[in-house]
Design a binder for these strands. Structure first.
Length: 969
RNA sequence: GCCUUGGUGGCGGAAUUGGUAGACGCGCUGGACUCAAAAUCCAGUGCUAGCAAUAGCGUGUGGGUUCGAUUCCCACCCAAGGUACCA
């Protein structure tokens, strides 16, 4: 009986679907376990072999936990709002919803054929109004909240209004805009309605403000910093300019400290947590004001080393700093101006990559030291960034490498005084940057103090004279939440007298309107500006035609939409109760599932999605809508599967009769071609010989495992290659060059899982992807080894069928000790491996297990039945089929995982490696119950030992019981 | 520059708290079966020398600790990912 994987897989996929085998209930006697994958954006290209890597891992874990007796929630859905569908709509006019729907159909088919145990009854799509209704609802809650620093949580904005009415805002300790005015109760009362709304916006957790953004005129949209590369858009390479726009922002900065602290309790990888820490960028220090001599201005700096205040020898301002123009002296003005212009011309990337070059100009002005009154020259330099801190630093060369380098570079010039050593340490070569291991000197009242003592003291003294105070600075900025796009969630917002008004929750969802075209309007409004029915009727509470706008009862709606991360910042909660009509999930469901126990996804979301989602979860927690304030206990990042691009080298030249010819040259022939050309008297520029060949991506499907190209396939690929010549190797073969790159349609290196499923089956694909290497490691896709895994499954099948002779062949006789040992060894290993996410090594263990059992001619139920369960997380289809053949009528998916029993592995002897000076020379089988002394004697009296020692007496013999013997001497 | 991770055969990769380096798979070589191919099975396969027994070398490089180091420590080189000249 042959292993017909295609039939078996189709059969069980149908069974699982019909029996709803993986449907999770929101209550159970069993403990809960929630396994989540980062949901995909359904792109037009479909899934490639890289996508399933994480899904296979999470599926193995889910199935494993079901066998272990957990009530497992393992859902899947689609992050279905996004730019590609919109750009396709712009090009073709096809509605993004239609494109998205079609893509989802493909994704679903592909996911199904890989045998994932998803609970599809809980599927979510962020672009469904049933879903984004709740995204809009969360937005409303954010708008209706402020961040109270006293209780360190988000609270209803109504509380704030209450206090404003009673006593103004003088005693309010809340996160707000920097320009928030201070007012009394009577002033508040005197504010107009619009003024009140303006003040409240400065406190709301989502607020409207003028934000400097990266505006891309061609795309008609704002881009995130990481979507801008080198001053042009990442997509399409269109120019990007800085522009101020009214935008919705999320006050994520209010949560900086909690986002940072929360990381400690999470079982996420250290490097990912470190990335988030760096992104949040907390620095503790002090803010210090320096008066400028002969001027009313003062410069505020932020420093992490206030203890070094007496070591300040100059100050540096960012060239963009607003005071530069006002304080520069006449003599320095032109030099300053030149420097500012030169800096403006340098791109960000330039300034960043070129950290070694030191540059700066003296302004001619001086600041005054807050304690000594000494003159401190003020410089400008491009190493100081306008966007961080205050855009000004106090430079202490003794304690900072950059300041040290700067001071040395300009040593002796006007405005650069000598370095002052304030440490009892040598600074003749480099600055002393450690925050410890020193005592201060030359530092007035700080002399003799260490870092901690001095920091405490200086802040106290600064506060006394009103020149500074302790300050914590975060790098994390508020997140812009508006997008000038069509295919996103509409805001539940209309505008009255220019102020945003929120639509009450009971009228949600506000459905995305139809538009004729998906581009920005001619007057630069976002695509929703094209909608005709996009006004809010406050009487009827519904969306009505724009023509009815009267600014009395009917108002224009917001034209921006929400960004991609809106829908993905809370979807894990929706899965808990995906069909709830009244709220995003019921209290009971949220209480039951609480949080994600295991989250698997790519590390590229480290500082985007994973930070925003944590922020929303904390907010929802503060307002009592979710029971926990971190949504994912454990997170694993799967590595990227890379493609093996195939390059052919094209060589265009004009032949003697001036005809353009296209020639493709096999990989190893290029060198000799160049030489031939040289001999034939053609111009052969050795410097440039490789550049004469243009590398071209060939579709990887034209190339076999030995890098040999199917020439006919390439010729038929493009009309212009039809008549191309091919210079092959001596054996007539044509080889391509291989390079590892990211898998992408444009590189023609995408490998589709469909073909592999057809050729080898889903079980083979699942096991092979795991076998490729450690889950978290990036690795190139290479099908070369897939036959090994496929062969293993065939061998497994034969184990249950006595070769291919009989239909089924399992005996009820007791199993041999050897077989039991093999089985239990495997149980132990697989259990440990899954727990440690070391899936690649358990595939090896399965191979060893089946090899051994085959050797033992094992056919006992006592072995083969538990083995099927053991294997079922990895290769669920074949496991189900074998399980059925073993006589079970229920799915294997809830069978108990075999329990490891130590007794089968107990050994009475050990094959000891006998090493001499650490080098293993031979092995010796010895009983384990011998004493160390007995082992020593046996080894020393062994003939081989005598041989190796050649009569010498060993200095020492190390016996590690059960491990090794080492003879020294 | 800084942070993180990594560097082991022809290739993907194994190796518990320091204890037989190279598991498992691919590839390769030879053999069996077959008219032949596919499939399957058997044997071998780190490198160098040798018919062989065997010897020497060997986990990026150079040191160190240890009876013993892929594993621990120091210095350095290289690669990948992240990033912020962050005061």
């Amino acid at each position: 009986m042959k292993y017909h994987f295609n039939e078996i897989e189709a059969k069980w996929q149908k069974y699982w679907s019909e029996h709803q085998t993986f449907k999770a209930e929101n209550h159970a006697d069993k403990p809960k376990f929630y396994v989540l994958d980062m949901f995909p954006y359904p792109s037009g290209a479909g899934l490639h072999v890289g996508h399933p890597l994480g899904y296979i891992a999470s599926d193995i874990y889910s199935r494993f936990m079901r066998h272990k007796g957990y009530n497992v929630l393992h859902p899947m859905g689609y992050d279905s709002f996004g730019l590609p569908a919109e750009q396709y709509a712009i090009q073709t006019g096809q509605h993004p919803a239609k494109t998205t729907e079609a893509n989802i159909t493909t994704y679903r088919r592909q996911l199904d054929q890989m045998g994932f145990s998803f609970d599809w009854s809980r599927e979510v799509r962020t672009s469904d109004s049933d879903y984004y209704k709740h995204t809009q609802w969360i937005f409303i809650q954010l708008f209706e909240s402020y961040y109270c620093k006293d209780s360190d949580q988000a609270r209803p904005i109504a509380e704030l209004i209450e206090v404003f009415t009673q006593e103004g805002n003088t005693r309010i300790n809340a996160v707000c805009d920097e320009d928030t005015p201070v007012f009394s109760a009577s002033e508040w009362g005197a504010y107009s309605d619009v003024e009140k709304q303006e003040v409240l916006l400065k406190y709301r957790l989502t607020y409207l403000s003028d934000t400097e953004v990266n505006w891309c005129p061609v795309l008609g949209t704002v881009l995130a910093n990481d979507e801008v590369v080198n001053g042009v858009s990442e997509r399409g390479g269109h120019p990007v300019v800085r522009k101020k726009m009214k935008q919705w922002s999320m006050r994520i900065s209010a949560y900086s400290e909690r986002l940072l602290q929360g990381l400690d309790g999470l079982d996420w990888t250290d490097n990912l947590k470190e990335m988030q820490r760096n992104w949040i960028g907390k620095s503790v220090g002090a803010s210090i004001a320096f008066k400028i001599q002969h001027s009313a201005f003062s410069i505020e700096v932020f420093t992490t080393r206030p203890d070094t205040l007496f070591g300040v020898t100059f100050m540096t301002l960012a060239p963009e700093h607003e005071l530069v123009a006002q304080i520069s002296t006449e003599a320095q003005r032109s030099a300053i101006q030149n420097y500012i212009e030169a800096t403006a011309k340098r791109s960000e990337r330039d300034r960043m990559s070129d950290v070694k070059t030191i540059s700066g100009v003296f302004t001619g002005a001086y600041a005054l030291h807050p304690f000594t009154g000494e003159q401190i020259p003020i410089w400008i330099g491009d190493y100081v960034l306008a966007g961080y801190g205050t855009g000004a630093v106090m430079a202490v060369p003794a304690g900072d490498d950059r300041d040290y380098a700067f001071a040395n570079f300009f040593k002796g010039q006007v405005g650069m005084s000598d370095i002052k050593n304030i440490f009892d340490q040598d600074i003749s070569e480099t600055a002393f940057t450690d925050k410890g291991g020193f005592k201060l000197q030359n530092s007035d009242f700080l002399n003799g103090l260490d870092y901690k003592e001095a920091t405490y003291k200086i802040i106290a003294e600064l506060e006394k004279i009103g020149a500074g105070s302790a300050k914590v600075n975060y790098r994390l900025r508020d997140a812009v939440f508006s997008r000038q796009r069509y295919w996103g969630e509409p805001f539940p917002v209309y505008y009255k007298e220019g102020m945003p008004q929120l639509i009450a929750s009971e009228h949600l969802p506000i459905i995305l309107p139809e538009v004729e075209k998906y581009l920005p309007t001619d007057d630069g409004k976002p695509p929703l500006g094209n909608a005709h029915t996009w006004a809010w009727d406050t009487i009827q509470n519904k969306v009505v035609s724009n023509e009815l706008i009267n600014h009395q009862t009917i108002f224009p709606l917001e034209l921006n939409t929400m960004p991609g991360w809106a829908g993905s910042s809370w979807y894990f909660n929706r899965y808990m109760d995906a069909h709830n009509k009244t709220s995003f999930a019921s209290v009971e469901a949220l209480q039951y599932w609480k949080d994600v126990d295991l989250y698997i996804g790519g590390s590229e979301h480290a500082t985007g999605h994973l930070l925003y989602a944590r922020f929303w979860q904390k907010f929802l927690f503060d307002r009592g809508y979710v029971p926990v304030d971190e949504f994912a206990k454990k997170l694993i990042n799967q590595g990227m599967i890379l493609g093996m691009s195939a390059f052919v080298y094209r060589w265009d030249y004009e032949s003697t009769n001036n005809r353009q010819k296209t020639i493709f040259v096999s990989k190893n022939k290029m060198e000799s071609i160049v030489q031939e050309r040289a001999q034939a008297g053609m111009k052969a520029d050795n410097e440039k010989k490789w550049s004469q060949f243009t590398p071209i991506h060939a579709d990887v499907s034209f190339v076999n495992a030995s890098d040999e190209l199917d020439i006919e396939a390439l010729k038929n690929w493009r009309p212009e290659y039809k008549d191309a010549e091919f210079i092959t190797e001596a054996n007539g073969k044509f080889f391509v060059n291989r390079e590892v790159e990211k898998m992408s349609k444009s590189k023609y290196n995408v490998v589709n899982p469909d073909d592999i499923c057809t050729q080898y089956g889903a079980d083979t694909l699942r096991m092979y992807e795991m076998f490729l290497g450690p889950l978290e490691q990036a690795k190139p896709w290479n099908t070369a080894g897939i036959t090994g895994v496929h062969g293993f499954l065939k061998k497994l099948w034969r184990l249950y069928h006595n070769g291919l002779e009989e239909s089924f062949f399992v005996s009820n006789e007791p199993a041999s000790a050897d077989s039991l040992k093999t089985l239990h060894k495997t149980i132990k290993k697989v259990d440990e491996d899954i727990t440690n996410f070391s899936f690649n090594t358990s595939v090896s263990s399965f191979m060893i297990c089946v090899n051994e059992l085959t050797e033992q001619k094992c056919n006992q139920r006592a072995i083969l039945e538990p083995l099927a369960v053991l294997l079922s997380p990895y290769a669920p289809h074949i496991a189900e089929e074998l399980w059925e053949q073993l006589g079970h009528s229920n799915s294997i998916s809830n069978a108990a995982f075999p329990v490891f029993d130590e007794k089968y592995l107990v050994e009475s002897t050990k094959n000891y490696p006998i090493s001499f000076n650490g080098k293993m020379k031979f092995t010796l089988e010895l009983p384990l119950d011998l004493t160390q002394e007995e082992v020593k004697n046996i080894v020393l009296n062994h003939e081989k030992t005598q041989q190796i020692l050649e009569g010498r007496t060993p200095k020492n013999v190390i016996v590690v019981p059960g491990k090794i013997v080492n003879v020294v001497g």
